[in-house]
């Protein structure tokens, strides 16, 4: 009896944590204005730097904390392998969609919560169609273009064969200086 009771609990708990993290993430995105087309496209038109400021400060804080916890042995990294064919071409296709739609997969969920009907009716349907199209073409793509320039699951510390902090500290300083310059430039 006890095991049959504990099994569903085990399965549900990660889902509830996912929901909780999502609520916090969506709340923050909305407070930052990142659930708005005008803010996202303003970033791509280089007239509003809100999105870059949010992303860079998240990366700065996240990077230091995750690597500190990794050094302490509390967490393990979970990174994605890649290739030039995957990340450059896929990244550029995504970028075009980013500008045309004006939301990305995370912020479109936030935009829907904010009441954006172009996101719900047009954008969401488009993302589902585009994802399905890729799943259909995947067998062909995975043997060809996605393999081009494959570099595996690589991080910068592993690439340069150095201790994490040799990269983390200069990267943190660079991000900080970049944010400082954005503020100084009045952007």
């Amino acid at each position: 009896m006890q095991t049959s009771k504990s099994i569903p609990g085990k399965n549900i708990s990660p889902l509830l944590w996912g929901l909780a993290f999502g609520i916090a993430f969506g709340f923050l995105l909305q407070k930052g204005g990142a659930t708005k087309y005008d803010v996202i496209v303003g970033q791509l038109l280089l007239t509003d730097f809100t999105v870059l400021k949010i992303m860079l400060s998240a990366v700065l804080v996240g990077m230091i904390g995750i690597h500190a916890m990794k050094t302490l042995g509390w967490v393990e990294l979970d990174t994605k392998s890649g290739s030039a064919g995957m990340n450059i071409i896929g990244g550029l296709i995504f970028g075009v969609g980013f500008a045309v739609l004006g939301y990305c997969p995370g912020t479109i969920a936030g935009a829907i919560g904010n009441g954006a009907l172009d996101a719900l009716v047009g954008g969401l349907a488009g993302i589902l169609i585009g994802s399905g199209l890729f799943a259909t073409l995947y067998p062909r793509l995975s043997k060809g273009i996605l393999k081009k320039g494959d570099f595996g699951n690589l991080t910068f510390p592993r690439l340069f064969k150095v201790n994490d902090w040799v990269i983390v500290i200069p990267a943190a300083m660079l991000i900080f200086i970049l944010l400082y310059c954005l503020e100084r430039a009045g952007l």
């Binding site: 995504f94 969609g97 980013f98 739609l101 993302i127 994802s131 890729f134």
Partner: peptide, 14 residues
Amino acid sequence: ALVGGVFIGFGARW
């Protein structure tokens, strides 16, 4: 928005 979404969905998977 739909066309942009297709690019986003396809590009994100790619």
